[in-house]
């Protein structure tokens, strides 16, 4: 599953980031992650619902991430048209053209994202944050 692979890579990246003390081999993690915020562009090929679906499967046995929620921000494809100079959001991912003048001479300005935006962590003895 594509999104499962992505979710697993996010997990592995964060486990490396937070060190072996938080890996599955250790009984007591030094840190816990509460929230992972991801920014996903429409051109990234990631289906946000699929990533949400895969996230608990990818992190279930991770002491660091097993309680973490994933928040996904979806970014539409925006293009800058070299012909008419207009920045636009385009709905059609299969034909990246300027939706105003039809020119294919466009530069993709947004929509490629697959970024970890932020990760909220706490020490195990700290209380979990309450959702406002």
């Amino acid at each position: 599953m594509h999104e499962l692979t992505v979710a697993t890579q996010i997990r592995e990246g964060l486990e490396r980031e937070f060190g072996s003390a938080s890996s599955a081999d250790d009984a007591a993690p030094m840190l816990l992650v509460d929230v992972v915020r991801i920014r996903v562009g429409a051109l990234s090929g990631i289906v946000p619902e699929a990533l949400e679906f895969a996230w608990p499967h990818a992190t279930a046995d991770s002491p660091l991430l097993s309680g973490a929620s994933i928040q996904i921000e979806f970014v539409e494809v925006s293009v800058d048209c070299a012909a008419c100079g207009t920045p636009t959001i385009t709905p059609d991912l299969n034909r990246l053209r300027c939706p105003l003048c039809g020119s294919p001479d466009v530069r993709v300005d947004g929509g490629n994202e697959l970024d970890i935006v932020s990760v909220d962590v706490r020490e195990p003895h700290d209380p979990a944050p309450v959702d406002p």
Binding site: E17, V35, R37, S118, V119, D120, V121
Partner: peptide, 9 residues
């Protein structure tokens, strides 16, 4: 931010 610029504090 937290001190490591990872997320919220």
């Amino acid at each position: 931010s937290d001190a490591e610029l990872r997320g919220r504090s």
